[in-house]
Design a protein around this nucleic acid. Structure first.
Lengths: 185, 185
DNA sequence: AGCGCCATGTAATGCGTTACATGATTAT
DNA sequence: ATAATCATGTAACGCATTACATGGCGCT
């Protein structure tokens, strides 16, 4: 009831609000104009999500009646911040890697603002470990089933494997990027 | 109604059935045991999806009462095959690349079985073109907004860009893989 | 006077999730 | 016997999609 069972769209909204208090319209514009465009910019998704979050006590909206034009600006409550932190602190599971990559990257993108760079590095390290376990299982599947699969099926799987390999490489470089920056200070 | 408005899960089912007539249980097992695991293996998703497809005339189930154990094996109808082909033949849009990558790869994985290798190559070529348009826009966004973004936000976007670059490279190699094979025949 | 943008919502619909329910068969 | 596996379904619930509805503001 309080903090679990929150949709990914709502998580994204919490992450946006932790940086800047915003109206529903602001969030819609952000979702169309930025690479967060994988989230819905439709009013039928965002306004109900905001209403749910407010009902749950995670955000709070203040009405601004600037010159007749009504606008409702939302900001995180203490409970909202706590819920966001708790989500970001969740350990990375195999299931996250297999079916929840979007959520994982969303979590990471808010991480160093909310939890700090140390947490971001820990996250990346854990992510790296999960990938190092998962990638070989995909390769084994491809090797042992290649014969029975259509050519394009095998290629599609190969593309998935390469995507994960790219992520692994990215995670390694991201970790060193945090470390060199720390040294540079 | 007839052929549009079909969920991705249902599309995946159609693709599975074009290869092997299967029961709901067979499909569930396939979804857990293969890298198609991003699809739901839950009975509450698969059986209703099968029922909808059958109601729509795209598949047809035959009851097998092998030794008391009832089993309903589904196969594609002519309309089902047509619907699948029509889906696979859809042109690739920017929206597919931004928000529908899963669907795109799913389409490709069935492609050479259903439409033949020529279509697969055309698909890859078109995919490549869309990527060549889209990737620079992401890079420009990153360059022009890097200053305002938190470090992990910029890194998350970078990971997305690299993923698309990997896909582009993969598409190129996949095309040559089809061509060399054609020469080899 | 009218068009486009700012701004917030609601209603119908459909699908997936989770949990529950049922029953037969095979292995221990 | 009884647990695990085969096998199919249903019910409550929540959320996203699409389309609709409303109204003020600013420009031409």
């Amino acid at each position: 009831m309080g903090a679990r069972d929150i949709s990914l769209l709502s998580r994204a909204i919490l992450g946006v609000l932790v940086e800047n208090p915003s109206s529903g319209y602001d969030i819609r514009r952000l979702f169309v104009s930025s690479p967060m465009g994988s989230f819905s910019d439709s009013p039928g998704a965002i306004y109900p999500a905001l209403a749910r979050l407010e009902r749950g006590g995670l955000i709070r909206g203040r009405l601004q009646d600037r010159s007749g034009r009504r606008k409702k600006v939302f900001h995180l409550t203490a409970a909202g911040t706590a819920a966001l932190q708790q989500w970001l602190n969740q350990p990375i599971t195999n299931d996250d890697v297999v079916r929840g990559l979007d959520g994982l990257m969303l979590r990471f993108s808010f991480m160093d603002q909310v939890l700090g760079e140390d947490s971001a590095v820990k996250f990346l390290t854990s992510f790296q470990q999960e990938l190092q376990i998962y990638i070989p299982t995909l390769r084994e599947y491809l090797n042992s089933h290649r014969g029975e699969m259509p050519r394009s099926g095998a290629l599609a799987l190969d593309s998935g494997i390469r995507g994960y390999e790219t992520l692994l490489q990215w995670a390694k470089e991201a970790i060193t990027s945090y470390e060199t920056r720390a040294n540079g200070r």
